[in-house]
Lab assay of single mutants.
Amino acid sequence: DWREIAKLAEEALKKQQPVTVNGQTFNDPNEIKKLLETAQKAI
């Protein structure tokens, strides 16, 4: 669910920690931002 992904990505950016989505881990803040943008577009 994109809403859940957006929430996870936002928290990861705030806490500056990696986030795992669908078994894929994102460590890079730039990648997390991209993930968040993608999720927000999909909602």
Rank of each mutant, 00 (worst) to 15 (best):
V21L: 09
N27H: 15
K15H: 15
L36S: 01
A12G: 12
L13N: 02
V21N: 00
P29G: 05
L8N: 08
T20N: 06
N30T: 12
T38V: 13
E4L: 14
E31T: 06
E10N: 09
K34M: 05
Q24D: 05
A9I: 12
K15F: 12
I43T: 05
T20E: 07
L13K: 01
L8G: 03
A39H: 02
E4A: 09
K14A: 13
L36R: 02
E11G: 04
F26W: 08
R3V: 15
G23Y: 04
E11W: 07
N30S: 13
I5A: 02
K14Y: 13
N22I: 03
D1G: 11
N22M: 14
K14Q: 09
G23S: 05
G23H: 05
F26T: 05
T38D: 12
R3T: 14
A6L: 14
L8H: 05
Q17A: 09
E37S: 06
E31Y: 08
D1M: 14
K33M: 11
G23Q: 04
I43D: 05
I43L: 15
A39M: 03
A12M: 03
T25I: 09
I5K: 00
V21I: 15
D1Y: 15
I43V: 11
V19Q: 01
N22L: 14
E11D: 10
Q16C: 09
K41N: 14
Q40P: 02
A39S: 04
K14F: 11
L35F: 04
E11R: 05
P18Q: 07
E4G: 08
V19A: 03
N22D: 03
A9S: 06
Q17S: 12
I32C: 02
Q40L: 15
E10L: 12
V19F: 11
K15S: 14
Q16Y: 10
V19W: 02
P18V: 05
A42I: 15
T38F: 13
E37N: 05
E10P: 00
E37M: 09
T25H: 09
T25A: 05
P29R: 11
K15V: 08
L35E: 02
Q17Y: 09
I5P: 00
T38M: 15
Q24I: 12
R3I: 14
N22H: 10
Q17G: 09
E31I: 10
L35H: 00
K15D: 09
L36Y: 05
K7A: 06
K34R: 08
K7D: 07
L8W: 09
Q24H: 10
P18W: 05
L36C: 03
L13Q: 02
N27F: 14
L8D: 04
